Simulated scan of single mutants.
Amino acid sequence: MISRLDGMPDGVIGFEASGTISAEDYRDAVLPALTEAASGGEVRFLLVVGDFDGMTGGAVWEDLKVGVEHLRSWKRIALVTDIEWMTHLTAMFGWMTPGETRTFPSARRAEATAWVAG
């Protein structure tokens, strides 16, 4: 499940993901916010992941499309998680992600929000 976070700084869209992520999560929550942000020129994206049980096949496809459809709009992506393998994968493959990417532990969520907004 993905839910939109309220109270983000201007220009930042934020989401919290938990459990199993589905294609509907992307279509209903992420895509409308992303399209709106991209129309403003650049996307600054905060993702907070607590517990994670995986993604459906449709969600993986939607995730790939999200990155490509707005390729030139991505400015910064902050991943906030204590899930070690996510941190390692982001460090290894973050260079393939459009825009600048950083990971932060949950205890540094406020710092992640400030960085992605900067």
Rank of each mutant, 00 (worst) to 15 (best):
I21T: 09
T101P: 06
V116R: 06
A59I: 10
F52N: 07
H88E: 15
D63I: 07
G99D: 05
L46D: 02
A38V: 04
F93T: 07
F93E: 11
L31C: 04
A78D: 13
G54K: 06
A110K: 13
L89A: 15
M86K: 06
V66T: 08
W115L: 15
L34H: 01
A78C: 12
E100R: 13
T20K: 10
K75W: 01
H70Q: 12
H70E: 06
P32F: 09
D28L: 06
S39W: 01
T103Y: 15
P98K: 09
D6V: 07
G14I: 00
F15A: 08
V116M: 08
W95R: 11
S18Y: 07
V30N: 10
A107F: 11
T97F: 06
F45Y: 13
I77H: 02
D82G: 02
V49Y: 08
W74Y: 01
E36Y: 01
G58S: 08
A78N: 07
R4E: 12
D82T: 03
L89G: 15
T101H: 13
A91Q: 13
D82N: 10
R102H: 15
K75N: 08
T87L: 14
A117G: 11
R4S: 03
A33L: 13
S18E: 10
V116N: 09
T103G: 13
D10F: 10
W61T: 05
E111K: 05
T90S: 14
V116E: 05
R102D: 13
A110Y: 04
S39D: 14
E84S: 06
G54T: 11
L47A: 09
A78S: 12
E69Q: 07
A112K: 06
P98D: 10
G118C: 12
F93D: 10
L79G: 01
T35N: 11
